[in-house]
Simulated scan of single mutants.
Amino acid sequence: MPSSFTSTCSNSEVDSLKDLLENEEVRYVRKGYGLITAIIMVAFSYFILPSFMLPIYKLLPYENKYMMYGGGCVIIHELTYILANLVMYLIYHAELPFFERYKISNDPWPWKKNPELWKVQLKKTIKNLLFNNLIVVPLVASPSFFIEPSIETSIEAFPTWKQLIPQTIFFMLVEDTTFYWLHRLLHTPRFYGAIHKKHHEYINTIGIASEYAHPLEFAFGNLLPAAIGPLLLGNCHIYTIYMWNVIRLLETTDGHSGYDFSWSAFRLLPFSGSANYHNFHHSHNVGNYSSFFTYWDTICKTNTHYWRYLSAKEKSE
């Protein structure tokens, strides 16, 4: 498909830098006023929020690196996941037109499509989430209680936006690369049936599905990619790590939410994916292996099916 396929919809083939830039332009334009909201959210998170968090941080046992890293990361993980999905629960059940216009699939939510089957799936999901969050997360974090982490916890070194922005971007790039290749590995016959198929029980995803996974996948395919960036960088401030954990959990909840919100702050990133991008991975079970970005999928031609699907869909509208 030539890069001049259309000026109003995405290209079905991305074979050149021009194609990438055209798709990026369309993606940003389509966000509309949501783009302004996303920019405000990002600016608040990096330029204003740290000043509000500093007084709270002073109340923590910041001199205890073991507790701040191990215990702190576990608490941040659990609180963020719970709060993010409480918000999504309210959005799902409010059924407000303001939110429903961003719904990706025309299929009804699982609790409406088949209430009895949903009760079974929900019970199964809750058991898995409890095990992953109450057993696997503390287990993965446990070494930090015995080995002094290479982090900064002092108030004097509390990070500003000049540290937060480049460091969290670095974490995103490392996480996306690690996640892509591990995720792709999980789709090979050797690992899919035994491990990754569990996550794909959700064909059209919802927020809680983000951490519904085989414990081995959860530990090595979810938690590990997020931890590698801070470990590689070393000696960054614990607040930066907390912020990164929140970013990663909110991003994956957003990506599994079933809504493609125009104001999603994560989609401000150049060559980023979307909830629609990841929902295609679940609904078609092919390609789109990345988390934050799309460049690995593009380089390895693992999002070609998605671009073709999107192009055909837009041509028919």
Rank of each mutant, 00 (worst) to 15 (best):
residue 210 S to F: 10
residue 269 L to D: 03
residue 1 M to K: 15
residue 144 S to E: 07
residue 151 I to T: 02
residue 234 G to H: 01
residue 160 T to V: 05
residue 160 T to E: 02
residue 283 S to A: 14
residue 26 V to A: 10
residue 250 L to V: 13
residue 255 G to K: 10
residue 263 W to R: 06
residue 197 K to Y: 05
residue 300 C to E: 03
residue 34 G to I: 05
residue 299 I to C: 02
residue 218 F to A: 03
residue 43 A to Q: 11
residue 112 K to G: 04
residue 99 F to E: 08
residue 198 K to W: 11
residue 103 K to S: 05
residue 87 V to I: 15
residue 265 A to D: 07
residue 79 L to D: 08
residue 58 K to E: 06
residue 302 T to G: 04
residue 25 E to S: 15
residue 1 M to C: 11
residue 137 V to N: 00
residue 69 Y to C: 10
residue 145 F to A: 07
residue 217 E to R: 03
residue 140 V to C: 05
residue 51 S to A: 12
residue 150 S to M: 12
residue 22 E to P: 00
residue 301 K to R: 14
residue 148 E to G: 14
residue 221 G to P: 04
residue 258 G to Y: 00
residue 16 S to N: 13
residue 276 N to T: 08
residue 248 R to C: 05
residue 132 N to E: 09
residue 186 L to A: 11
residue 249 L to Y: 09
residue 8 T to N: 13
residue 15 D to T: 08
residue 170 F to D: 00
residue 287 G to Q: 04
residue 41 M to R: 13
residue 135 I to F: 03
residue 156 E to I: 14
residue 253 T to I: 07
residue 277 Y to Q: 01
residue 249 L to T: 07
residue 240 T to F: 05
residue 74 V to G: 00
residue 123 K to C: 03
residue 186 L to F: 15
residue 47 F to M: 10
residue 280 F to W: 09
residue 74 V to M: 00
residue 131 F to S: 10
residue 282 H to W: 13
residue 148 E to Q: 15
residue 99 F to R: 10
residue 232 L to I: 09
residue 36 I to T: 11
residue 106 N to E: 12
residue 68 M to C: 01
residue 159 P to Y: 13
residue 196 H to Q: 10
residue 80 T to Q: 09
residue 191 F to A: 07
residue 130 L to N: 10
residue 280 F to L: 07
residue 174 V to W: 05
residue 98 F to E: 09
residue 225 P to T: 08
residue 101 R to A: 05
residue 253 T to Q: 10
residue 116 E to W: 11
residue 75 I to D: 01
residue 37 T to R: 12
residue 16 S to I: 07
residue 317 E to N: 14
residue 122 L to I: 08
residue 303 N to Q: 13
